[in-house]
Amino acid sequence: MSVDRRELIRTGGKLLVLTTVAARAVEHVMAGTVDAIQRELEAEHWWAMAIDIDKCIGCGGCVRACKTENDVPLEPFYFRTWVERYRVPAVDEEHPHVDSPNGGYDGFPAASQADSEAKSFFVPKLCNHCAHSPCVQVCPVGATFESPDGVVLVDKTYCLGCRYCVQACPYGCRFIDPRTHTVDKCTLCYHRISRGLTTACCEVCPTGARALGDLKDPDDPIHEFLRTNMVHVLKPQMATGAKVYYADLDGSVR
């Protein structure tokens, strides 16, 4: 097949124009897949939380403050943060007795004498703001996401209320808000930390058992906390990149 010069230029020109158009179209379609890592590197903060088990007294101040600050429904099954009381039989680490009456909102009723024989302590829980979050991975519409500064947030105007993320969270940190029928969870008080305040739970914690930390700030006390304590995250085997760090966490905690 012979092609004369005119035809070559004409076909070549068409191909050139079509390729450009196609490239623009592909760019438009792929617009949702920007390099998240780059955004995280550019962000000013990388938020985390440090929890010292040996300081938690189970007063429930964090639970009450969180519900007030974030307008969480008061029914005893909606929590953005809650406190669990563990009582571990000395010879049976695998079967701790765990209770969390109203999430610790009203404090804890005194334990019976029999239970006081066991090793016991409190474990405050909240969203772990995972860097590789299972809840974000399952959201079918991009309504939940990891912010560039490391906070897992919900876009309430976009959430369908499909509950996939509620099931995906290995830490049980999500619930469906009965008023909006969209998902709700700890935002690490995003409205407070972006104003330079600490979270409501950390603000009221009387013993400093929980402290917000910015891992990108070299002067933040969280670095000393992580360096000088035996630190653990919850369910490390799930490789969620959890950023709530517990000091002196007992092996029985799930």
């Binding site: 949702g32 007030t68 996401f145 976009y158």
Partner: peptide
């Protein structure tokens, strides 16, 4: 898609809440 697979305005939505403490 501006910042990732989400609506970038949602960051401001979350930050706009008024603190009570």
């Amino acid at each position: 898609g501006e910042l990732g697979h989400y609506r970038s305005g949602a960051l401001d939505d979350n930050a706009r809440v008024e603190p009570r403490f």
